[in-house]
Amino acid sequence: MQDKSILIIGEAFFPEEFVINDLAKYWKNNGYSVEVLTRTPSYPFGKTFSGYKNSIYQKTYFENIPIHRVPVIQGYQKSKVIKILNYVSFVFFASIVALFIGRRFDKIFVYQTGPLTVALPGVLIKKLYNKNLTIWTQDLWPDTVYAYGFKPNRLLDTVLNTLVKLVYNSSDKIAVSCKGFAPKINAYLKSEKVISWIPNWSIISKSASNKLNFSGEINFTFAGNIGKVQNLDKVLLGFSKAVKEFPEAYLNIVGDGSSLEDLRSLVEEEKIPNVNFIGRKPLSEMPDYFEASDVLLISLVDAPIYEIMIPSKFQTYLQYKKPIFAVMKGEVPNLLSEFHLGLSADSNDIDMIGDRFKEMMSLSKIELDEMSLSAQTLLFQYFDRNKNLMKLSEITLD
């Protein structure tokens, strides 16, 4: 095999828990020289992780993979201004590092989980050093910008559309984590390109190591980031309607994020019973919580972009063969219906959310188990780790 060197560029990398860590190790273990350009780890809290310095530049290692880190502006989870400053800061500092190290790599791989601006250092290397550039898009701009709450206007539209055209027309290969992204990206391309659908796979796969016993007869569990877009306020209000008739039902929320304290206040103000805020847990402990649950919950606000998205927790939930309750519209409810894996509700309709909670609370253990029988089929068909690692390698390294 010919030696190849790869630079991965992205906002997130170990110790932050993303699928890119797995991909980097896979390439390293298959004989490729891999390095990473990212920022100081801070997700999801918006604060520098313990053991790391928020320096102008620092070099760390993960599984013998060199990681070039640039600073993060802390507090971005609760401020749009700081969030935008972070985008600019990353582009500025990462581009400086890219100028010094970019020439020595054969391939540039952009892992875009949030802002599309993260790709600009990769575009710079492409333009200056004529390197092959691949982007794996996890979040669709400009749609996500508007879904987050920014109001469309002529200036913002012009800036975002120019950015999107620049990034995707500069990329040699394009992969998307959600099938619905492809036609939207295609509209910005000057010439025809193949856009490969390569979804995420579960980064948690082991069995439970400690048997947990939740309170109650039926337990719903949400796991992951707790922010504005997760729509958990409406989920809680829907649950409050159902739990009155099913006092042995519990809702467990595992995770942390910018909306956690607001949700705690909502539970207290509305006197919603049987809600457990468990806090953030390491990935190694999450199988214990999934195995102890009867139904796994996924929720997103009502926005067109989220109708074509498959959040990465969906693949993880499938791994544990539990019924899924989706409070959202679009692709995920469609898959639940097609494979008979659970129920869904409109993310804006609190009464409907409550009714679906009641419907699932009414099911027996046997009926709940039957609801998840097709999880393995769906996992293998679309979200198989080995298949998707090979697909990413084929489009990036060929």
Rank of each mutant, 00 (worst) to 15 (best):
Q2Y: 09
I6H: 00
I9P: 08
I9Q: 01
F13R: 02
F14H: 13
F14C: 04
P15M: 10
I20D: 10
L23Q: 09
G31N: 06
Y32W: 04
Y32D: 06
V34T: 03
V34N: 00
E35I: 00
V36F: 06
L37K: 07
S42R: 15
Y43K: 07
F45C: 13
F45M: 14
S50E: 14
Y52H: 05
N54E: 09
S55E: 15
S55T: 15
Q58R: 11
Y61Q: 11
H68Y: 03
K80Y: 06
I84L: 12
L85A: 06
V88D: 01
S89K: 10
V91T: 09
V91Q: 06
A94I: 13
A94P: 11
A98E: 05
F100G: 02
F100M: 03
G102A: 04
F105K: 00
G114Y: 00
P115S: 13
V118S: 06
L120R: 09
N130L: 00
N130E: 01
K131Y: 00
L133V: 03
T134G: 07
I135F: 02
T137F: 03
Q138H: 14
D139M: 13
P142F: 02
T144R: 02
Y148E: 10
P152Y: 04
N153W: 05
N153A: 08
R154N: 13
L155K: 03
D157W: 01
K165Q: 11
K165P: 06
L166I: 14
L166R: 12
Y168Q: 06
S171D: 12
I174R: 08
S177F: 01
K179Y: 13
F181V: 14
K190D: 14
E192M: 03
I198A: 11
N200C: 11
I204G: 02
S205M: 00
K211F: 03
N213V: 10
N219E: 01
F220M: 13
F222R: 02
N225C: 12
N225I: 07
I226L: 10
I226R: 01
Q230D: 08
L232H: 11
V235E: 04
S240A: 03
A242P: 05
E245G: 01
F246Q: 01
Y250V: 11
S259Q: 12
D262Y: 10
L263F: 00
S265Y: 15
L266N: 03
L266M: 10
V267P: 08
I272C: 10
I278R: 07
K281N: 08
L283F: 04
S284M: 04
E285F: 08
M286D: 07
L297F: 12
S299Q: 14
L300T: 06
A303T: 05
I305D: 04
Y306F: 15
I308Q: 10
M309Q: 09
Q315P: 12
Y317A: 09
Q319E: 15
Y320A: 08
K321E: 15
K321H: 12
P323W: 09
M328N: 01
V332Q: 07
V332M: 02
F339A: 07
S347W: 00
N348E: 15
N348G: 06
I350V: 15
G354T: 01
D355S: 06
K358E: 07
M360P: 10
L363V: 01
E367V: 01
E367R: 08
L368F: 05
S372Q: 04
L373I: 11
L378E: 12
L379Y: 12
L379W: 09
L379F: 02
F380Y: 00
Q381M: 13
D384N: 15
D384M: 14
K387P: 08
N388W: 08
L389D: 05
E394M: 09
I395F: 02
L397E: 04
